[in-house]
Nucleic acid binder design. Structure first.
Length: 441
DNA sequence: AATAAGAGCAACCGCTCTCTG
DNA sequence: GCAGAGAGCGGTTGCTCTTAT
């Protein structure tokens, strides 16, 4: 027996909200407060589903909502958080006061994801330098614009410039069946340019750094509870969060769809697919044998290691045997191995769902050739004083990973001194590191 | 001027999680 | 522990509108 529907579907109004409905809802909530969504429509005299009322209130009628376009700073936050959190829109929204998950989701789907695709294609030049521009303020805004627009609705930005349309239209035509009052409100707000000034990037980063670290710790704590469920889910269903770009990875990493760069006959080896976190960064697909087939056997071995909770980088017989079996450089191997484990322990549930195939594979990389010229591996990275607590007898990769993330996240760390250990890192590569690292968490 | 194409986004849907009795 | 209700979340749909042809 299935669950009872959240509301009686018969006789309920659907579609856009009218000004009258909005007013009724607002008045009711102002008088009675939020909650009891199920009974709210009846009590308020609305022919709407309770869920619909809730959504309307949360997304459009709440007083604390920020109106207007997503600012570049907000966009920056969205990009960064999406790189680390994936499609957890509500979580992302919690970092952006006044923004709703729905708004962010829509913004992502309509603006950013497309821009990223454009960006990726546009950067498929012969230049092997990993071009990454979106970690901070996306350059795609100014560059990499498709040559010619083929029609379509104008952006909000353009709409704002053309406010005469919307406001006038709203005022003059007050169509009862359409154009809810909230739309009018939006435009009014836009009219006032009432976009609150976002916090400074520095502040933002500070907050974000903390939040991400908190999040990761939390995730690590929850990992044990989630992992088995995730594995079950993964085995029971093949859908979920498997990216369209990665297929079943048991027989080795295969791309379900050929990467655009490959279509174009270009070695995409250095183009970062940083935003599509479920995508395989092309530069990981180097010929260095970075990605190897992940067998069930290996997967369970990793899981066992994880469960034993005593595996460390650079030590342990299990690791050695893995190295031997796979015949890979021990250092790289260990780092990659740990990356896999970290993916399990620090990733969110959805990532875990896909970890068995895609993420194991994606993270099972050779850690050299990340940046074409500079040899780079995680052990080197961990030599940084900022990252490694040398008092530790053994590596605790998860801990160090968190440090590494926070280090990467900080814009103001001393790259000069770091570079003595890590080699020269220009800001661009630094951004790339952030993106890559976060996309693998 | 008409129309097709496509962008933007509000709203819906179905699922999961949490709370409560 | 279980079941039902409520709440929340993420994916998807479909309408509205703009723009190119």
């Amino acid at each position: 027996m299935g669950r009872a529907p959240c509301c009686e579907k018969v006789g309920l109004k659907k579609g856009r909200w009218t000004a009258e409905e909005d007013e009724i809802l607002m008045k009711y909530i102002q008088a009675n407060g939020e909650g009891s969504w199920r009974s709210l429509p009846k009590n308020a005299g609305l022919l709407r589903c309770g869920k619909s009322c809730r959504l309307r209130w949360i997304n459009y009628l709440r007083a604390d909502l920020k109106r207007g376009n997503i600012s570049p700073q907000e966009e920056d936050v969205i990009i960064k958080l999406h790189a680390s959190l994936g499609n957890r829109w509500s979580l992302i929204a919690s970092h952006l006061p006044g923004r709703t998950d729905n708004e962010i989701k829509n913004y992502w789907n309509s603006h950013l994801s497309r821009r990223i695709n454009t960006f990726r294609r546009a950067n498929s030049s012969s230049d092997k330098t990993p071009m990454i521009t979106d970690v901070h303020v996306p350059k795609a805004r100014s560059d990499n614009i498709p040559p010619k627009r083929k029609g379509g609705k104008t952006s909000r930005w353009a709409m704002n410039k053309n406010k005469s349309y919307s406001t006038q239209n709203q005022k003059e035509t007050e169509k009862p069946k359409e154009s809810s009052v909230s739309t009018v409100n939006h435009e009014d707000e836009n009219e006032k340019e009432a976009v609150p000034v976002p916090s400074t990037p520095a502040l933002e980063n500070e907050i974000l750094s903390t939040n991400v670290e908190d999040f990761m710790s939390l995730e690590a704590d929850q990992e044990d509870h989630k992992i088995s469920d995730a594995r079950e889910k993964e085995s029971s269903t093949d859908q979920g969060f498997r990216s369209s770009s990665c297929s079943e990875g048991r027989e080795g990493m295969q791309l379900e769809e050929q990467h655009p760069l490959e279509h174009e006959g270009i070695n995409g080896g250095e183009v970062l697919c940083f935003i599509d976190t479920l995508d395989v960064p092309d530069w990981l697909l180097d010929d260095g044998g970075g990605i190897w087939p992940l067998t069930d056997e290996r997967e369970s071995s990793i899981l066992n290691n994880k469960n034993n909770n005593d595996d460390v980088v650079g030590g342990g017989t299990g690791e050695e045997s893995e190295v031997g079996r796979l015949g890979t450089c021990p250092n790289k191997m260990a780092a990659s191995e740990e990356m896999e484990r970290v993916n399990l322990s620090c990733s969110n549930e959805k990532r875990e769902m896909s970890s068995g195939d895609q993420w194991f594979s994606c993270s099972s990389i050779s850690t050299t050739s990340v940046f074409d010229d500079n040899s780079w591996d995680w052990e080197s990275a961990l030599q940084l004083d900022n990252i490694v607590d040398e008092s530790q007898d053994e590596y605790s990769w998860v801990d160090n990973k968190e440090k590494l993330v926070s280090w990467l996240w900080e814009d103001d760390h001393d790259l000069e001194s770091d570079s003595q250990n890590l080699g020269d890192i220009d800001p661009e590569k630094h951004s790339a590191m952030i993106a890559w690292f976060l996309s693998s968490t």
